[in-house]
Amino acid sequence: MVSLKSIWKFLEEVKDPEVPVLSIIDLGIVREVLFVDQKAKITITPTYSGCPAMNHIEKDISHVLNTKGIEFVEVETVLSPAWTTDWISENGKKKLFEYGIAPPVDEPDKSILFAKPIEIQCPQCYSKDTSMVSLFGSTSCKAQYKCNVCLEPFDYFKCLK
């Protein structure tokens, strides 16, 4: 008999292919784990509607659980409740920063145009003197920033609520 706790543990080995330092548990996209009649049923939710990593993650989940001796795996994707960056674990945020991606910071109302930008810390030199280059970055979930002190460009994981 496989315990649910061990399945959650196994799932920590499944990484986000676009941010390989984060597991899908850190990312908060695993919503439910069930084990019934020798079959694991994993429910996940996408970060963004068009996230191209979802198919990859589904396959990785099956693969990892298969290697742990769980032969039958079903992965279901649900849209509701919609994912938010609040579900990224504290540990996940720490890992992001160490990896060079600034973790999400609570943002004021997005309807305010040209709002005073929020303070984002540079993951290279830790300065808070940074500026946004573009609201959109290398993946749907990130924006492009640059540090005004060390001049390094870096990714910021956008706040999504």
């Binding site: 849209l79 409740p81 919609a82 997005k110 309807s111 145009l113 609201l135 999504l160």
Partner: peptide, 24 residues
């Protein structure tokens, strides 16, 4: 439809901010 709308709304807010700022 409600679930898709809630999901899409979060993305749309970023799109609107981007296009509005560029129009200005």
């Amino acid at each position: 439809l409600a679930a898709i709308a809630k999901k899409s709304l979060k993305e749309t807010k970023y799109h609107l901010k981007h296009s509005s700022e560029w129009v200005i």
